[in-house]
Simulated assay, not measured.
Amino acid sequence: MSIKNFFSAARVYAVVGATPNETKFGYKVFNWYLARELPVIPVHPSATHILHVPTSQDIALAIKRANEEYPNNDGISISFITPPKVSESVLNEIETKQLKDQIKGVWFQPGAYNEEVLGVARHLGIDPIVENGDCILVSGDSYSVKSSL
């Protein structure tokens, strides 16, 4: 696993599994990005706002929004905080809608992946794929510093 391409000064981040429920990790991970003033888009199928930020209902809409709001971005990195079936579905949407060239990295939070999910991500050619049990809440700051964010 190489994390060097996950973070970038011109990157936009999407949090798939962001939630308005303050007790859940999807909320905490989304808030992690906000607290660091990183451009981040929450992805949730039904919530309209999380921490006063408008949500996108799916990854295609999040990517479209990222390109509209941050036209000089160098791509999208995605944090997944979803069950493996949902993670796999989102990756399949990326492939079906031909969005894979815009994805520069994925970070699967613990519990958001299985071997099938990792296989789909590798098939898409996404690098880096963070899937070693690292949680962005624990290791994100150290990785972002190493990436010269």
Rank of each mutant, 00 (worst) to 15 (best):
I103P: 13
S144L: 10
W32F: 13
V106Y: 06
A121M: 01
N114I: 07
L51M: 15
L91G: 02
N31R: 15
Q98F: 12
H49F: 08
Y33W: 15
L118S: 14
F80K: 01
K146G: 06
K100M: 03
G140F: 03
K146V: 00
V86R: 00
T23H: 13
P39F: 05
K85R: 12
L137R: 00
I136W: 07
I76R: 05
T23C: 05
A14N: 13
A35D: 13
A47D: 04
E37V: 11
H52K: 08
E93V: 10
P83F: 15
L99K: 14
I63M: 09
V120Y: 10
L51V: 15
I3L: 07
E131G: 11
V43H: 00
C135V: 00
V86P: 04
E115G: 15
M1E: 09
N67K: 11
M1F: 14
N114D: 14
R65N: 01
Q109H: 11
A62W: 09
M1R: 15
A18Q: 08
S144N: 10
W107P: 00
L99D: 12
N67S: 05
S2E: 10
R122Q: 08
K104W: 12
K100D: 02
L34I: 15
V12L: 04
P39E: 00
I136F: 07
I41L: 00
D74G: 03
A62E: 08
N132F: 06
P54K: 11
I3C: 05
K146M: 07
F30D: 04
T96K: 09
K85P: 10
S77M: 08
R65E: 02
Y113R: 06
L38W: 02
L34G: 09
R65W: 04
V43I: 08
A121P: 08
E68F: 09
I126H: 05
D58V: 09
N92K: 07
D127W: 12
V53Y: 06
E115N: 14
P54Q: 06
G75N: 07
K97Q: 13
A66Y: 08
N73D: 02
I126K: 08
D74F: 02
P84Q: 15
L149T: 08
P42I: 01
N21M: 08
S139R: 04
I41G: 01
K4I: 12
A9L: 10
Y13S: 07
S144R: 14
L118C: 11
V12Q: 05
E88R: 15
V130F: 06
K28E: 01
N114E: 09
E116Q: 13
A10I: 00
E115K: 15
Y70S: 00
I3H: 10
Q98V: 10
N132H: 10
N72I: 02
A35R: 15
S89W: 07
I3R: 14
G26D: 12
K146E: 08
